[in-house]
Design a protein around this nucleic acid. Structure first.
Lengths: 147, 147
DNA sequence: TTTACTGCAAACGGTTTGCAAAAGG
DNA sequence: CCTTTTGCAAACCGTTTGCAGTAAA
C-alpha cells in the first residue's frame, strides 16, 4: 500500500499541484478493487472527512486520467464512466448481469496478442478493454433476476 | 445480404410487430460494418426517406437489443451507446484514438477462453466485450493529433 | 377491435463549463 | 505574486418517459 508521499510524488511528476482531494482520490481508487464512478468517489471523499464538490471530482479524475494515473472504463448497460487506479498489471472483470458484481480476472487472456496485432495492422497499440459478462451462481439460481 | 422479408420474419419470431422503421433500422445496421449511435441511425432513416422521431429510434433499438437482434456496445471516451447488428460471428474492433476509425478484427482472440472461464468460476458466461485501442499509421505520423 | 407502436414535448441523469474566490508553488 | 485548483450554479447532451393518437394483427 502506498503512502501519501507516494501520491504526492506522482502528482509532482505529472506536473500537477498537490491537493488533499487529489491525494485522497488516488488513495480511494488505489484501495478499491473495482473501478468507481464519479459519485462513488464523491461519497468516499465525504466519508473520509474531505468533502469536495462533484464538479471538482469530475475535473480531478479527468485530469488524473489524462496523466495516466487513472484509467477510464465503461460497462454495457451503465451510462456512467468508471475510473480505476492505473496499476502495473492490468486486470479484467467478469461482470454479473444480475447483481452487477465485478469479479476480477487477474490473468489477461490476451497474452502477447497486442504485439501480434501491431505487426499485422501496422497500428501502434495503446491498450485494450475487455470485460466478460455472465451470471454468478447466485443470480443464476434466482432465474437471472439479479439482486 | 438479407431481404426485407427476412427482417419481417425475424421480427415475427421475436414477437414484435412489423413496421417500416424497424425493418429499415435492421437493414441499416446489417449493412453498416461499424456499430452506430442512435443519432446516426436517425439520420440514415431520413436519408432513406423514412424519417422517424428520435425517441422512436431509441425505443426501437432498445427493443431490438432486448430481443437479441442487435447488440449494445460502448467505447471509451464516447458517452453514446452504439448498436450493432447481431451477426452469427461476432467481431471486435481496433479503434484509432486519433481519428476514431474502427477497424474490424474478424478473428476473436479469446478462442475457447469463455468455456475455460466458465469452468473455473462456475459462472454462466453470456458474452464479452473487447476493443483494442491504438493509433493508425496516419494518425501516428500526424503526431497523435487525430483529425 | 385490441394491442403494440409512434410522435411530441417535457423530464432526467451524468457530465461539463464560466466565473469569481481560494490555495499551491 | 502568479498559476492552478475549487465551489457554485447553470448549461449541456444523450437518453427516457407520459400521454394522446395511429397503425399492425
Amino acid at each position: 500500500m502506498e503512502r501519501e508521499s507516494d501520491y504526492r510524488e506522482r502528482l509532482k511528476k505529472s506536473g500537477l499541484k498537490y491537493t488533499k482531494h487529489r491525494t485522497a482520490i488516488l488513495a480511494i481508487l488505489a484501495q478499491s478493487e473495482p473501478p468507481l464512478a464519479a459519485e462513488q468517489i464523491y461519497l468516499a471523499l465525504r466519508e473520509r472527512g474531505l468533502p469536495a464538490n462533484l464538479s471538482t471530482v469530475y475535473r480531478t479524475i479527468e485530469t488524473l486520467a489524462e496523466k495516466n494515473l487513472l484509467k477510464k472504463r465503461s460497462l454495457i448497460g451503465d451510462s456512467r464512466v468508471l475510473f480505476e487506479y492505473n496499476r502495473a498489471h492490468h486486470s479484467h472483470y467478469l461482470v454479473c448481469l444480475g447483481c452487477k458484481k465485478m469479479l476480477p480476472i487477474r490473468r489477461c487472456p490476451l497474452g502477447d496478442y497486442e504485439e501480434k496485432l501491431e505487426r499485422e495492422t501496422n497500428y501502434t497499440i495503446a491498450g485494450h478493454n475487455l470485460d466478460v459478462y455472465g451470471y454468478c451462481p447466485d443470480c443464476r439460481e434466482k432465474g437471472h433476476r439479479g439482486n
